[in-house]
């Protein structure tokens, strides 16, 4: 299993910008927002938590379709399915590799982007905490969606349509954590609820993802 993780990370790095692509997308979203809503700090500060979470979510979405597609096309997935590792584990490791190349860099870079959006001082800690706890769920849900659509020729758009509604609870609690942090309210409640979703997702979706992969491999 560790071999699979190392291979996937190595592939992400060698493919050119495995880490960079999601970050660059996040950066562009954050830069474009002030052009759309105006440069005033009074406008930017209240919407900053939502924009940061939305940007991270969309950046995550960008690379989902590659989670299984390349392995499906070159036959690796068939070989993985007959290997002495559970397919559920393969799904979980793939989601972890996706998180390490997108969710983690996004989490670490988010405070810098927060400055661009005039995120008030109280929000930074909550921003990092909520992204660190929430983005694993985004990767795991995304891996499930990618497993559902792996056999389809134009699965990318369909994948977004399937995955985005599943992201709603995480987005609500994640952005709310930061918003409450900014306003000095108790941000612990939404953070804990979101962590609950994340852990539930991590526990259950590998099974759903593996079931979908088995169907797609038939």
């Amino acid at each position: 299993m560790r071999g699979l993780l190392i291979r996937d990370l190595r592939l992400a790095i060698r493919a050119g910008g495995g880490f960079g692509l999601a970050l660059a997308f996040f950066l562009i979203v954050v830069i474009l927002v002030p052009f759309g809503v105006g440069p005033s700090a009074n406008v930017l500060a209240p919407i900053a938590p939502g924009i940061l979470w939305l940007g991270a979510l969309l950046a995550c979405l960008l690379s989902l379709d590659r989670i299984f597609a390349t392995d499906f096309e070159d036959g690796s997935l068939e070989f993985l399915a007959t290997a002495p590792v559970p397919l559920e584990g393969v799904v979980a490791v793939k989601a972890l590799a996706h998180w390490l190349t997108t969710g983690l860099p996004l989490t670490l870079a988010a405070p810098v982007f927060g400055i661009f959006l005039n995120l008030p001082g109280g929000g930074y800690g909550w921003l990092v905490a909520s992204l660190a706890l929430g983005t694993p769920a985004l990767s795991m849900i995304g891996a499930f969606g990618a497993a559902l659509t792996v056999g389809l020729k134009r699965g990318g758009l369909l994948l977004s349509l399937l995955v985005l509604p599943l992201y709603i609870p995480t987005l609500i609690f994640g952005a709310d954590t930061v918003r409450r942090g900014v306003e000095g309210l108790d941000a612990g409640t939404p953070l804990i609820l979101m962590a609950g979703i994340t852990f539930g997702t991590l526990a259950l979706l590998p099974f759903a993802g593996a079931a979908a992969l088995r169907v797609n491999l038939r």
């Binding site: 071999g3 291979r7 190595r10 592939l11 096309e73 070159d74 036959g75 690796s76 068939e78 070989f79």
Partner: peptide, 24 residues
């Protein structure tokens, strides 16, 4: 099982490809 596709990763070297499957 070895099907029509070889399951190779173009950006990995021959040795890395084999080592990966061996470790798995």
């Amino acid at each position: 099982y070895a099907g029509h596709a070889d399951g190779l990763k173009g950006t990995l070297s021959v040795g890395e490809n084999l080592t990966f499957w061996g470790s798995l």
